[in-house]
Structure formats: C-alpha cells, structure tokens
Design a protein around this nucleic acid. Structure first.
Lengths: 113, 113
DNA sequence: CAGAATCCCTTGGGATACTG
DNA sequence: CAGTATCCCAAGGGATTCTG
C-alpha cells in the first residue's frame, strides 16, 4: 500500500465517479430510458415517469442537457411546447447501462438463491 | 409510449438500479478499489482512504459483505485484528467499473473541450 | 485495534402554489 | 403547457466519544 498505488487508483476513480454521477439520483435513469423511445414533450415525460414531480423532471433534464446527453427543443406553438430527446452522444450511455444491468441481473439471481 | 414499453423498461431498470446501489455512496468505490490491492486490516483501510471515518468504513464494509463482495476475517491476536478482502465474486465488479471508467474518461475529455 | 453510539449538519427530494 | 419558487422532511454522512 504505497503512494503510487493511490495516485493510480485515483486516476481510475475520478472518471468512474463522473460516470456514476451522471447516472445517480432517483430519476436520471428513468428519464434516460424513457427518452430511448423517441422525442417526448415535458408533460408527456411527466406522465410516463410515475411519481416524478415537475421540479425534479425539470432539474434533471437541465443536468442531462448540460452534459450534452439530451437535446431540448422549443416549439413555437400556443401554448409553447418543449420536446426532449437523447442526443447521439446520449445513446452512447446505452452500453454502460447495459453492462450495469447485466451485472445487476446476475447479482440479483445470486443473492436470492 | 404504451404500457408495454413501461414494463419492459422496468425489467431493465431494476437490475441497473441494483448495480448502481452497490456502487453508490461516497465510499464504496474507494473501498473496493483499495481492496483490489490485497488483504487489508480495518485500521489500514482507514488510513489508506483519506477522509473516511471509522463509522462510514464499518457501515460500508458491512454492506459489501452482505452482498458477498467482501470477505471479513477475524484474527485471534491481542488485540484482535480483522482483515478484509475482495471475494472472487467481488472481483467480478471490475468489468463494470472499468466500463464506467472508460465512458467517464471519454466524457471528461468531451466536456472539457 | 475494531468498532458502536450519539449528536449534528447538509443534501436530495416531495408537496404545493404560482407564472409566462 | 412548461416550468419556477417556497417550504418541508428524511436520509447520508461528519465529528466526537465510548467500549470489548
């Protein structure tokens, strides 16, 4: 257990934390997976994700947009409507989510057995 | 956006959440990556992970042990010492952590550019 | 040494009401 | 419709003290 180990350890840890932060929280995952189905309006998202409040939805979408994972589009209707969709980049999360799901599925089977 | 979509969505979501829960929190990741270096005693872990308190270390190790990721061994010394190590199963997390790290690294480069 | 117990503060997130 | 503002509560986690 030396200092070298630590600095290498941290080099690994920081990006892992970055990825984890993006997926963390109660609602990021439901929002992302719902957006996999296409271009969806705010209200529609709110209805599709049981239990979420407008406040949380708005806040999480803003974060996802800042991370370039989601694209926000304002439509000039009356009243206005706003749509959200995954960016091409956002879809790159699919791999890592699938990997998490694979491990989680195996884990679940192992623990309940 | 129909009901079918939702039930399939949830089938995916639950295991992903399971995996995420295991990695979540401030200290699980540092603990796991530190344990990659071998069999380590409680106090030594506490020293190796800057900022962690005994309370948090104890609590997180207990959770990891419950999930069969970590093995706890009590040594009959005076005073007693307790060692922790990753189980073979615990090492299976490496793949998913690496996957997260890969995405996180690319993301970091994308955002700061 | 290896923790458990206690106290306290900060953060995540819910409920409700309001606005352009 | 698409949010924002405010208030509030529960959980996560830190500091300190205590024990076998």
């Amino acid at each position: 257990m030396d200092k070298i180990a630590h600095s290498e350890c941290n080099k690994l840890l920081v990006p892992v934390r970055d990825a984890l932060d993006i997926l963390s929280g109660k609602w990021k995952l439901p929002i992302i997976t719902t957006l996999r189905f296409g271009v969806i309006r705010f209200k529609e998202l709110e209805r599709e994700i049981p239990g979420i409040t407008a406040k949380m939805l708005s806040k999480e979408l803003k974060e996802l947009e800042m991370n370039q994972l989601v694209k926000r589009t304002v439509l000039d209707t009356t009243p206005i409507s706003v749509t959200y969709e995954l960016t091409e980049y956002g879809r790159s999360l699919e791999t890592v989510i699938l990997e998490l799901g694979k491990w989680g599925k195996a884990h679940r089977e192992r623990i309940f057995a």
